[in-house]
Nucleic acid binder design. Structure first.
Lengths: 216, 216
DNA sequence: GCATGGTGGATACTGTAACTATCGGATAGC
DNA sequence: GCTATCCGATAGTTACAGTATCCACCATGC
């Protein structure tokens, strides 16, 4: 399989494939004979599909994809660390974090819920900082109001995380498991976001409009 | 309050404020005397803080911010429609959606869960398409495996949406309510994502490592 | 045995997004 | 009156994600 075939199968322009090769997202094909004839296999198609999903649907940047793929490919990186690597990349913020009153309050609130639910998470988990940043921003712009959702969110993500781990645990192969965890986490965020909008619409409809005629 | 003051208070460079004015994100200050002396008030500070949160923490693009702000400011736009407007902007995809087997399956699955939970959502809600797209991408890259989480996700977002609506309903003023819904939805996605990582770490830790010494 | 066209690799270019810098004229406050 | 600041417009900058072009080289069908 040469580039043009890979391009056809995966639906990605050749120029873009070359770009991904340059950027180290996609391993180079085996240069069988010599010099300028490399051959690509099924693994390249998989990887390319993965990259496209992360970029197009997951919204990751190229450098973010490079990072997480490197983590996938390194057998020494534990799973939760790989997922942690996606945090800083999905939420681009974290730059020049202001240490104001809002942030202090957010730190306290996150600490409270982590303790209350008995979560065993390291104090310096990147996701923890991300959560603090978002919560601080909520306070900054919306006052106290928004913090009241925190407990419900925490219970909801426990449900989600249990399901996530069930799915990931069921995969025997290490590489496939890492890939599953990655895709499930990155795309899962967006799936959750879309479902949340639907659920909001539903809840809003049931609360504020008369119920539809019963259909038993 | 002139631009430089606004800049100091909100922590945003003057040049950037001018850019936002140009782009119509921020209403121009009242041009009190005439021509070149405009004055800004507390509302501008609020709006500027809101914009920065949506951009920096929420990750929205400038054009997306313009769209949702226009929806906020228009009293005729119903709440769920405003939130729907954020869907297409957060998930940039939707371009050249392939109608392959994966998508067909995703459509069926979303239809199934919506029916199963009795969700009252319109068939052409933007969030529905977004969910279908993401689910199709999951199938494309990860096979059947990932779809098993769907039911758990649906139950989780019901919890979340109830909490969201509780919070929003508690706000009396229409404008503040719209703003709360917007911020809660956009930033809420990221808060949920970060909390989800934490919960994943916790669940992973409790499943695969010995329990910590008890501290009753 | 040789023309044709695809290949790998390098380099240069394009388009978009989000600012950032400069400029010309006006005006505020001393 | 003088200087600092302001407004508005225009032009420039940086980063990102590709695209496009070039060129020497293989490989294969005639």
């Amino acid at each position: 399989m040469r580039v043009s075939d890979l391009s056809t199968v995966a639906g990605v322009p050749v120029a873009t494939i070359k770009y991904y090769l340059r950027e180290g997202l996609l391993p180079r094909g085996e240069t069988t004979t010599s010099a300028n004839q490399a051959s690509y296999g099924q693994a390249h198609v998989r990887r390319l599909t993965l990259i496209r999903s992360l970029v197009d649907v997951g919204g990751l940047s190229i450098s973010a994809v490079r990072k997480v793929l490197a983590a996938i490919d390194d057998p020494d990186v534990p799973l939760h660390e790989m997922l942690g690597a996606t945090v800083g990349t999905v939420t681009p913020g974290a730059g020049a974090t202001e240490h104001d009153e809002y942030r202090a309050q957010a730190v306290a609130e996150i600490g409270r819920v982590v303790d209350a639910r008995g979560w065993r998470v390291s104090a310096d988990a990147p996701a923890r900082d991300a959560a603090v940043d978002v919560l601080a921003a909520m306070h900054r712009v919306g006052g106290e109001r928004l913090a009241t959702v925190l407990d419900a969110y925490v219970r909801a993500v426990e449900l989600v995380a249990e399901a996530d781990l069930d799915t990931v645990s069921a995969v025997p192969d290490r590489d496939v498991r890492a890939e599953t965890a990655l895709v499930g986490t990155v795309l899962g965020d967006h799936l959750l976001a879309a479902l949340r909008r639907l659920a909001q619409e539903h809840v809003s409809a049931t609360r504020f409009t008369p119920p539809p005629p019963e259909t038993p």
